[in-house]
Amino acid sequence: MGTVPDAAGLTVGEVSTRLGVTVRALHHWDDIGLARPSLRTAAGYRLYTAGDVERLHRIVVYREIGVGLDRIREILADSTVDVPGALRAQRAQVAERIDRLQQLSAGLDRMVDAHERGLLLTAEQQVTILGPQWNPQWPVEARRRYGDTAQWQRYAEQSASRSPEEWQAVADTVADFERALGEAMDAGVTPGSPEANQLVDRHRDVFASYFPLTRQMQVCLGRMFEADPGFAAHYDGIRPGLAAWLRRIVDAAARVHGIDPDTATWQ
């Protein structure tokens, strides 16, 4: 490496600006012997000749298309290297990455939609899957009420990955449980009994299709099911008085576990 006046070549900073690469990268390429400047100033600073800059330009081009530094070294050092073949292989890898990124982008779009809408089903699909009593505005209202909660986030995450067929399976599970509720009420199952407590546990398991439910949260839901006209109408449509009965069995099970239903909070 020669020592010349400063004006004989380009400094690291000038090359960095010209090629749009960092000074740190230029230093690294020098250290590993990939692109060493041919000259130095009397003070020991690197200077790049026109030939050096041309080599650097080729390195930058290959780096931008994702070729690794070791492979770049081979391409630049060996005139017998099948450059078109190497580039075709790189193109295939890029195409695979593009496909993965497109899938990731689609997944992100679904996640955003799920956080904003709750159900990634059309209004018609919602009614078909969840039943004629279902109101497609309910997810909108739930988003308004609970959109900033951790439970809504869990619900959205599950919703984003769920197909209509999977939602149908959820709906079938819920329907089976609600039939069991109605039958238990008809059979005179009393709040606090083992049969009623098993139904309360089953309710939490079923509800986990949306998000995990603590016993205190379950008590709060029981209150809402009885007090909210929409939910009360849904449960009372299965059996008259079922909304109030569901709350009673939930409250009784909570007491068994040391929870006062009158003071339970959403936690």
Rank of each mutant, 00 (worst) to 15 (best):
M1Q: 12
G2Q: 15
P5C: 08
A7Q: 05
A8Q: 13
L10P: 00
L10E: 02
T11Y: 00
R18W: 04
L26D: 04
H28F: 06
I32K: 00
G33R: 01
S38F: 09
L39D: 02
R40D: 00
T41W: 01
T41E: 05
A42H: 08
A43H: 08
A43Q: 11
Y45H: 14
R46V: 04
R46G: 02
Y48S: 03
T49S: 15
R55E: 06
R55T: 06
R55A: 10
H57M: 08
H57Y: 06
R63W: 03
E64T: 11
G66L: 07
D70C: 05
E74F: 01
L76F: 08
S79K: 14
S79M: 12
V83Y: 04
A86R: 11
A89K: 12
Q90N: 12
Q90P: 05
R91G: 09
A92I: 06
A92H: 14
A92C: 02
V94S: 10
V94H: 10
A95R: 09
I98A: 11
Q103W: 05
L104R: 13
G107Q: 15
L108K: 03
R110I: 02
V112F: 06
A114L: 04
A114F: 00
R117Y: 13
R117F: 12
L119Q: 06
L120N: 10
L121A: 08
T122F: 02
V127Y: 00
L130G: 10
L130P: 09
G131E: 12
P136W: 09
Q137L: 10
Q137E: 13
Q137M: 11
Y146I: 00
A150V: 11
Q151P: 01
W152Q: 08
R154G: 05
S159G: 14
S161R: 14
R162T: 15
R162G: 01
W167K: 00
W167M: 04
V170S: 08
D172A: 07
F177T: 15
E178D: 14
A180N: 15
G182P: 15
E183A: 13
D186H: 10
G188F: 05
P191N: 02
S193E: 03
A196K: 12
Q198V: 08
D205F: 01
V206G: 05
V206R: 10
S209D: 14
P212Y: 07
L213H: 11
L213A: 07
M217T: 05
L221F: 07
L221E: 11
R223I: 02
D228K: 01
P229H: 02
A233T: 05
H234R: 09
D236I: 04
P240Y: 12
L242T: 13
A243C: 08
A244F: 06
A244H: 06
W245K: 09
W245Y: 13
R247D: 06
R248M: 12
V250F: 04
A253R: 08
A253N: 10
V256N: 11
G258P: 08
